[in-house]
Simulated scan of single mutants.
Amino acid sequence: MTKRIQFREYGGPEVMECIDFMILNPSWGEVQIENKAIGVNYIDIYTRKGLYSTNLPSGLGTEAAGVVKKVGPGVDFFFPGDRVVYAQAPLGAYSSIHNVPANKLVHLPNTISFQEAAAVFLKGLTVFYLLYQTYKVKPNEVFLFHAAAGGVGYIACQWSKLLEAKMIATVGSESKATLAKEAGAWETINYRKEDVFERVLNLTNGSKVNVVYDSVGQKTWESSLDCLSPRGLMVSFGNSSGPVTGVNLSILNEKGSLFVTRPSINSYISNYASLKYAADKLFSMIAKGLIKVDVPKEQIFPLSSVKQAHQALEARKTSKSLLLIP
């Protein structure tokens, strides 16, 4: 038996329940992981609300770090006792034990703790594909990144500095502006007090930017398009304020023959080779102290307090990462 978070219907945090769950032995190609730390991500909220549908009742979460407990048939690269981390597992990572396909796991270096790994892995892989593959950010290039003090944004601030790029970071408070600036953002915009478009015009001397990374969605859609220079790229990779729907394609023409993409990690990190490559890149930067992982103590919750964790994340009361501890 294992403790597991489950939901039987879509809705708010109240639909989640902590249950006793009978965990089966790992099947062919699977590895059974005893989770030590679990990453909480905004995509988990999308799943819980039904934006991304699943068969109900369902587990929740795709990211955790822990120790191999058992290996199934056909697995010859992982062994009981190995330290591992995963970020693209089948739903159910919000649990004390989880069965994960071996090709979704990577070995975790001893220099990185379970909590650090669960806090950074999915977010770090996301930043990797966004800044290197969706659009290759160049040295000295100015670009706009929304929600820059959140989990993905905080890592993006650090990574953009390593790339010697100039990231304009939008945030919702002065304390988050300080956090983003300290992490590596070139400039910050407090969207609660400043007009994002006007500030981008001012910071770029009217030329605007070639790329906008937007995980907010509905509320920032049009202003993000306004910030793009002709033939610029809008990278819409999240929906924290609600999904963008009913798009009139002619608006892309009107605002300068713009491009739009709605990427997901599974399209970029789609096989074990790409997973290993991105993970090695991320772990190397952490080992060298170039990317720092810090989870505020008040954002580490026991598994049974998952409702409070989701409430805090949705209320935008958090920065950096959130964790659940089984």
Results as ranks from 00 to 15, higher is better:
Phe121Leu: 03
Pro139Cys: 06
Ile97Asn: 07
Pro139Val: 05
Ser95Asp: 01
Ala117Lys: 04
Val127Asn: 10
Leu122Phe: 14
Phe114Trp: 10
Phe114Lys: 08
Lys136Asp: 13
His107Cys: 12
Leu131Ser: 14
Asn99Cys: 08
Leu130Tyr: 08
Thr134Leu: 14
Lys104Met: 07
Leu105Trp: 04
Leu130Phe: 09
Pro109His: 13
Lys123Asp: 02
Ala118Gly: 08
Glu141Asn: 10
Gly124Arg: 12
Lys123Trp: 08
Asn140Tyr: 11
Ile112Leu: 09
Pro139Glu: 02
Ala117Asp: 06
Val100Thr: 04
Thr134Ala: 15
Tyr94Thr: 07
Ala102Gly: 01
Ser96His: 10
Ala118Asp: 08
Val127Cys: 13
Pro139Gly: 09
Asn99Leu: 00
Tyr94Met: 10
His98Gly: 01
Asn110Lys: 15
Pro139Asp: 03
Pro139Trp: 06
Asn103Gln: 11
Asn110Trp: 04
Leu105Lys: 11
Val106Leu: 03
Leu108Arg: 06
Asn103Tyr: 09
Gly124Val: 11
Tyr135Met: 01
Pro101Gly: 07
Gly124Pro: 12
His98Lys: 02
Thr111Gln: 10
Lys138Tyr: 02
Val127Arg: 05
Leu125Glu: 03
Gly124Cys: 13
Thr126Pro: 09
Lys138Glu: 03
Leu122Trp: 13
Thr111Trp: 00
Val142Tyr: 07
Pro139Ser: 06
Leu105Gly: 09
Leu131Ala: 14
Leu130Val: 02
Ala93Trp: 00
Thr111Leu: 03
Phe128Gly: 03
Ala102Arg: 05
His107Tyr: 13
Ala102Phe: 10
Thr134Ile: 15
His98Met: 01
Ala119Phe: 13
Ser96Thr: 08
Thr111Ala: 08
Thr126Gln: 05
Asn110Pro: 05
Gly124Phe: 11
Gly124Trp: 08
Thr111Asn: 10
Asn140Glu: 13
Leu130Met: 09
Pro109Gly: 12
Ala102Asn: 06
Asn99Lys: 01
Ser113Val: 05
Leu125Tyr: 03
Gln133Leu: 07
Leu130His: 03
Glu141Phe: 09
Thr134Met: 15
Tyr132Cys: 14
Tyr129Phe: 15
Pro109Thr: 12
Lys123Leu: 06
Pro139Gln: 04
Ser96Lys: 10
Tyr94Asn: 05
Lys104Phe: 06
Pro101Met: 05
Val120Asn: 02
Ala102Asp: 04
Ser113Gly: 08
Val142Ser: 11
Leu125Pro: 03
Ile112His: 12
Ser96Phe: 09
Lys104Cys: 09
Val142Arg: 11
Tyr129Arg: 13
Glu116Asp: 14
Gly124Met: 11
Ser96Glu: 09
Pro139His: 02
Ser95Tyr: 04
Asn99Ala: 05
His98Gln: 03
Val100Ser: 04
